[in-house]
Amino acid sequence: MQDKYYVGAYWGPRRETALECARRAELFFHMLARCDPAFSQWYRAGRGFPRDLPGWPVRPEMKELETLFLKGRNRTDVGKKVIEDMGFRLMVWNAKKDAIHVHLHCGGYSPWGVPNSCLLNPLWKSAVWERLVRSPVLAEVLTSVATAWDPDYAMASSSQMVDLVEKRGSEVRVGWLTYLSRRLGTLPPLPAPVRIEPVGTLGWLLVLSPEPMTASNPEHVALTTRVRELLDRAGLIERPAPRPASE
């Protein structure tokens, strides 16, 4: 089975307003646009959009993004009341065919809700995504995610590799490319050919290989497993149970 790659960034409870999330999203989309032309235009769902387009065009500007985040709040089934501590959600995509989807969940501060996250994921086999995966662009994408959203960790990997390497469902995931925030602790020495690059003052980007790592390659699985073990010994893998953002 061919590996299916995705980018995922995750962080714990962080109480932010729709405007604060919109500022981060604006930076994120502008940084993505500099990574590759495939990320220059995004669309959203909604009734009545022109049929020749993939959806309603989204302008990656703070005020429009704030409005979309406010529309994407979680509500109760009865009474449709806003659930404040569940934050905001937004999903956009970049094309009608071979689309890459971006799922954003931010501003959530419930210790029992799903984690805040930023996901880039092709729902179907995409020629554009396959091209991006096999180039240095994916490292730029991960850097954009880390810079804009300041997650606890982020990774670019195949879902098949995650299934092989992950030991606990709530742990920090290690992939072909892995970003770790300095909040997690101190980075230990890692074996060659792992390359470590700083992401500003926020954290580190670990590049395990210059080429895509596949779950069907035993050497790739062994290296990813080894790096995970070393990070786990250094206390960087286990994620503590989240507490309310006010604590």
Rank of each mutant, 00 (worst) to 15 (best):
F28M: 10
Y153K: 02
H30T: 09
V145M: 08
R75F: 10
D98S: 14
L68V: 09
D98M: 12
T147R: 12
I83T: 11
E171N: 04
S144P: 00
N121L: 15
S157F: 08
L104T: 03
V145I: 11
F69P: 00
Y43Q: 06
P115T: 05
R44Y: 08
W129Y: 15
N116T: 04
D85R: 04
G72E: 12
P111M: 02
D85W: 09
K81W: 13
M31D: 14
P111S: 06
L104A: 07
S40I: 05
Y109H: 10
M91G: 10
L65V: 01
V78R: 13
W149H: 11
N74C: 14
I83G: 03
E26D: 13
A139W: 00
W93F: 13
K71C: 14
E166D: 06
K125C: 14
H30M: 08
L119F: 09
F29T: 00
V133Q: 11
R51C: 09
F29R: 01
M31N: 13
P57S: 09
S110H: 11
Y43S: 08
F88S: 03
K125N: 15
L119S: 02
P60R: 08
G48I: 04
G107I: 03
W93Y: 11
M161C: 06
F29I: 02
A156N: 08
K96G: 13
A148S: 13
L65F: 12
H103K: 13
R47T: 09
R131V: 07
S144V: 04
G107A: 09
S135C: 11
R73K: 15
S158N: 04
